[in-house]
């Protein structure tokens, strides 16, 4: 992302870094005007900026990570699909009267292998976001997703899903069309597929809306993505009765990739370029592609029943309780 653009989408915690960078630019300009050689000082300052960047991005709080996960320039599902696939053919419609633009999918080729890719699609700008409903899918979206997954299962193509949504769309129409039923149906059906399933949280994993395409034997997360049971804002409003406690909620809910790895919910964490995936989208895409191929190679070796058993056991063991004999 160009420097000027990065400044327009500046996050709070990036400010000191940005100030330092613009100071370096000023010095450079002044040096050119006055014809003074300051290359040594500039190199020093740049090293300091690099150091500062590392410090900032290696000590992010969960709330700051959430900001990165929601960054308006963060690569979206379609960005990744286009970057990682050799070919891509988008398919439309749930065959029940709607085509949800907030959930996209189709057939693709990944390193020669035909696959089905699908995921939540956020908009790239305000206008696009309105059309895409900010990546919040309606029942039709989840029904389109399951239709595409059934397609994949029929033709023996692995299913690759990308999660990036604030949550399922909470509207009158959604309830009328059975948002709960649509998600529930997907959860159960995804256990039935014989083909490998890999889900990757690329940005925001928001509650049931994320889980609706999130049942897999292999669940991956980008370093700065988050996955939550409820948005920290909603959680703060409900549990703390104070929406301003969102930062506290973000920490308490354990939403980062490391937390979820520790809880046995995800299999792997994909490292991001130093300032986040939006800074170097192609680098992030290359990481994703590599991880998908590696995991696919491992999963396609297994028998279908073995994969189903793996998927079942993965979820079966999630949970924390104690057993006190009677």
């Amino acid at each position: 992302m160009p420097k000027t653009e990065r400044r327009t989408f500046l996050l709070d915690f990036e400010k000191p870094l940005c100030e330092l960078e613009s100071r370096i630019d000023q010095i450079r300009e002044l040096a050119v005007e006055n014809k003074v050689d300051v290359s040594e000082q500039i190199a020093q300052l740049e090293a300091r900026a690099e150091q500062l960047r590392k410090e900032i991005f290696s000590t992010l709080t969960p709330a700051q990570r959430l900001q990165l996960a929601r960054h308006p320039r963060r690569p979206s599902t379609l960005d990744y699909i286009q970057a990682i696939s050799d070919e891509w053919f988008e398919l439309h419609g749930d065959r029940g009267g709607s085509d949800d633009p907030a959930l996209v999918g189709g057939v693709a080729r990944l390193e020669g292998r035909p696959v089905v890719m699908l995921g939540h699609q956020k908009g790239r700008d305000t206008k696009d976001n309105v059309a895409r409903n900010f990546g919040m899918a309606s029942p039709g979206g989840y029904r389109k997703a399951i239709r595409l997954m059934e397609h994949a299962n029929k033709f023996g193509m692995p299913i690759l899903t990308f999660i990036d949504t604030p949550g399922a769309w909470p509207g009158i129409e959604s309830e009328k069309l059975g948002q709960g039923e649509a998600i529930a149906y997907n959860l159960r059906q995804m256990f039935s597929f014989e083909v490998p399933i890999i889900c990757t949280v690329i940005g925001e994993g928001g509650s049931g809306g994320a889980l609706g395409i999130g049942v897999a034997e292999c669940l991956l997360m980008f370093e700065h993505s988050v996955y939550t049971v409820a948005s920290p804002e909603a959680c703060a409003a409900i549990l703390w009765k104070d929406a301003k406690k969102a930062e506290q909620a973000a920490t308490a809910l354990k939403i980062t990739a490391w937390d979820l790895k520790e809880l046995g919910i995800i299999e792997g964490i994909l490292p991001e370029p130093i300032s986040g995936a939006h800074a170097e989208p192609l680098e992030a895409a290359a990481t994703l592609k590599q991880a998908l191929i590696e995991n696919l190679e491992r999963l396609v070796e297994m028998a279908p029943e073995q994969r189903q058993e793996l998927r079942y056991q993965k979820f079966r063991q999630i949970g924390a309780f104690k057993e006190i004999p009677l």
């Binding site: 529930a184 159960r188 049942v215 999630i318």
Partner: peptide
């Protein structure tokens, strides 16, 4: 979902649905 258990509670949705899939099968 019980928010006090974070993502562990969300995952119970999938876990129960998986068991229901076997019952259905």
């Amino acid at each position: 979902a019980r928010m006090q258990e974070g993502m562990l509670s969300l995952m119970q949705m999938a876990k129960i649905s998986g068991a229901l899939h076997r019952h259905q099968k």
